[in-house]
Design a protein around this nucleic acid. Sequence first.
DNA 1: TGCCACCGAGAGAGCGCTCTCACGAGTCGC
DNA 2: GCGACTCGTGAGAGCGCTCTCTCGGTGGCA
Lengths: 338, 338
Amino acid sequence: MNETPAGRPTLETVARAAGASRATVSRVVNGSTTVRADIAESIRRAIAELGYVPNPAARSLVTQRTDSIALILPESATRVFSDDAFFPGVIRGVGEALEKADKQLVLLLASTQASHDRILRYVHGRTVDGVVLASMHGADTLPEELRAAGVPVVTSGRPLGEATVPFIDVEHASGVEAAMKHLVGLGRRRIATIAGPQDMVAGRERLAGYLTGLRAVPGAVPLVEEGDFMRQSGTDAMERLLQRDPGIDAVFAASDLMADGALRTLRRLGRRVPDDVAVIGFDDVEAARFTDPPLTTVHQPIHEIGTRLAEQILRLVAGEEVEASVVLPTRLVIRESA
Amino acid sequence: MNETPAGRPTLETVARAAGASRATVSRVVNGSTTVRADIAESIRRAIAELGYVPNPAARSLVTQRTDSIALILPESATRVFSDDAFFPGVIRGVGEALEKADKQLVLLLASTQASHDRILRYVHGRTVDGVVLASMHGADTLPEELRAAGVPVVTSGRPLGEATVPFIDVEHASGVEAAMKHLVGLGRRRIATIAGPQDMVAGRERLAGYLTGLRAVPGAVPLVEEGDFMRQSGTDAMERLLQRDPGIDAVFAASDLMADGALRTLRRLGRRVPDDVAVIGFDDVEAARFTDPPLTTVHQPIHEIGTRLAEQILRLVAGEEVEASVVLPTRLVIRESA
DNA sequence: TGCCACCGAGAGAGCGCTCTCACGAGTCGC
DNA sequence: GCGACTCGTGAGAGCGCTCTCTCGGTGGCA
């Protein structure tokens, strides 16, 4: 009578309590339909009474699944968060979609080289079934290394260089072109841009959109200053721009945060927006509706990027095929700054 | 000669390759010092050659540890993120500190009742060694349920009601009182507040600080409108406030986002800040430096909250004792809005 | 030289689960 | 009425690891 179930109940405990075998209890737990109703019922009762919860480690050991997905943010940690709305939005989208599929989200913050290695170890250990990779800088080797490790991967944003894994992205260039068209239609002729980092595809493509859009202005010369997508860099870049050409009558900033920063510089230097200088941003974060004046911006479906990422990785994990890329539309949202 | 190591190498594979036993390989992997140097060396070489990575599920199964910590955000998912800087900052702080300890961060987004149950299951399953709980609303039952489940827990923000688990919080009231003192010192007499949700301790204590601070103004009557910490609610609350008393000469908003929203209403209605109405916020998010005018606000050490949370949970998980509460200081940052 | 203590290495059990396979009981057809 | 079949259940192996226990070998000391 050494019946001390001391610790947490196991399948065995439940089986004994319900007078069934471990295998049958396992069947009930996993929703098999081939168990006689009354037996299933008494097992379920035993489970409830004992407060049995399956041990995921034991389960993973045999199934080779973990039911969790890693979201890797390889951005330099200091700039990922702060109050940028892009990543939080993506996290939320991914999280919600995974929750529906009853998968777990594991967040890996990859700032340093050490964490790069840690992540590889983590993924090699198969602690996750798949990986969602957000926003790489430059020719990041991570996607390729992960693919080589045989783990399903999907990335947010087309990688720089050749894409070896499926990705979700948005129509950067065409969105920016719409913004440029709007500025030109407003009669603006000396249009500058605050570009994003040129080691990121989002930065490059938005700049490309600016350059393409500028062709509609006969004789216009590109006027470019680079920022890092954050507010402060927008403030600084706007200053440099105005120094280079005080006659600027419009600015396209590659992010709302930089546009907000630019607004600040314009205000400080006594330029009226949009009268003297029209400003357009990119992202359409919540804050864009609260700037002074409210920001005209290129909207991108941040939340949907997250849900689509989750959707793709779930399909890959399930062994299904997915499109090599999904490119979501952007659209110009006209408020008062342009 | 059935030597097909087909899949991932296991301890066994490494042991055979190095001509040692599984136990000895395990010793090397786990850094035991009792292994003869030359054997250890050849084992390490075999590990490198085979690309061996320990299977964490198998390890957890026997050690009963998982080396990962859950961060639960039980806020309604729609409001947790957006572009509020508080949670991202906390996530970053927790993540960095855990990374140093070589622990993994698992993010659980708890929006619905369903996810509440899912979280309990998850934690009961011991998929994590400990739990960090951020920002509960009302008398959330989660901390108590987790404690009852025997899992180490630490929460961010004093819980409403009796605290049954250790928590990290900041000096809400005294920070607000400093802000009020500043306003009074500026000669403001009709000071209103945009309070946070009153089912959150942060909301309540900041309101309490306002009420205490207002006592310094003879005959002053409290003027309170409630928001939800987000921008839009600040815009709306400011409108109601002005309707109730057009002569308001100062406003304390319980969050920077609400203060920013309030700024917008004031601008729209032609009130100059700070000349007509002084505005003070709470949080000191990055955006506070970029509002028009730059926001005077109560600074709270968001990043440190995160690192302290991580520190405490790590100690709990290690079986050490921790203080029942840690309360971090806040301080008034004076910019131009007041 | 012989005995004992000590240290490093291996054998083996077992963590909690899933899943294959075999088996017994019931059902059907000829 | 007997074999063939189906269906539900149990036995048992094994996932990859850790850790205790045991054992063989070496050195110190009498």
